[in-house]
């Protein structure tokens, strides 16, 4: 494992912890898209089907369990916790899951490294992760009020994606035959989706102002 991959995993972990911390301590999920969180739960559930069959390292298994556990607990908090669920912006968070799920599934059935149940679902999880942030970005655009924790959550997610790209570049040059077009293209697309958000995030940070997206 190289430093970029590790930094990517750590910022990913930090993003999830920031979100859980916000929900658990403030008992509020205002500004957080349940649609995005449910998509992430699907992403991890379909990607980590190999969790009990293929052992890579203790680190990998542990992180998989953390991402599965945290994504499902966030969904549980937002749907079922009697206080947290009241702060959910249900009327604003109207993005439809299946607009993203169905095309990703069809695409994964056409484009994959091997047409098997696990490979197709693994590819589906990559495509879905690439677009899963969209409901969250739409919600931010609509409500326009972004508290610090929600802003940090999205910033950390974007940082995670950026580190993964550096990791792929590093591995491409250091490991023979390391070529994986599907995750690279999906990952690049995903990172680009954060571009706009990053621009406003740095802008507000530089001017020491509260993060606000344009209408």
């Amino acid at each position: 494992m190289n430093i970029f991959r590790f930094a990517g995993d750590m910022t990913h972990l930090a993003s999830v912890l920031v979100l859980l911390l916000k929900i658990h301590t403030i008992k509020s999920c205002a500004g957080v898209s349940l649609k995005t969180q449910e998509l992430y739960a699907i992403v991890f559930a379909t990607r980590y089907l190999d969790i009990f069959t293929d052992f890579i390292s203790l680190y990998n298994t542990f992180m998989k369990l953390v991402f599965l556990g945290s994504s499902f607990s966030i969904v549980w908090y937002m749907r079922s916790h009697k206080i947290v669920r009241r702060s959910y912006d249900k009327d604003q968070d109207t993005f439809r899951h299946y607009f993203l799920i169905v095309p990703c599934l069809l695409l994964a059935m056409i484009i994959n490294e091997k047409f098997t149940f696990r490979e197709v679902l693994w590819t589906f999880s990559l495509f879905l992760e690439a677009v899963a942030i969209l409901p969250q970005l739409v919600l931010l655009q609509r409500t326009r009020n972004i508290d610090n924790l929600t802003g940090q959550y999205i910033f950390l997610l974007g940082a995670y994606r950026a580190f993964y790209i550096f990791n792929w570049i590093y591995r491409y040059f250091t490991e023979p035959h390391y070529v994986h077009w599907i995750p690279w293209i999906a990952g690049l697309l995903q990172t680009l989706l954060y571009g706009d958000f990053f621009y406003y995030y740095f802008h507000s940070w530089k001017n020491n102002k509260k993060l606000q997206l344009p209408a």
């Binding site: 991959r5 995993d9 990913h12 990607r47 089907l49 190999d50 069959t53 293929d54 890579i56 990998n60 992180m63 998989k64 991402f67 490294e113 091997k114 098997t116 149940f117 696990r118 490979e119 693994w122 993964y164 990791n167 995750p183």
Partner: peptide
């Protein structure tokens, strides 16, 4: 399940 390709990233 068939053996999967090597997916060592998260």
């Amino acid at each position: 399940f068939e053996t999967s390709l090597d997916h060592d990233e998260l």
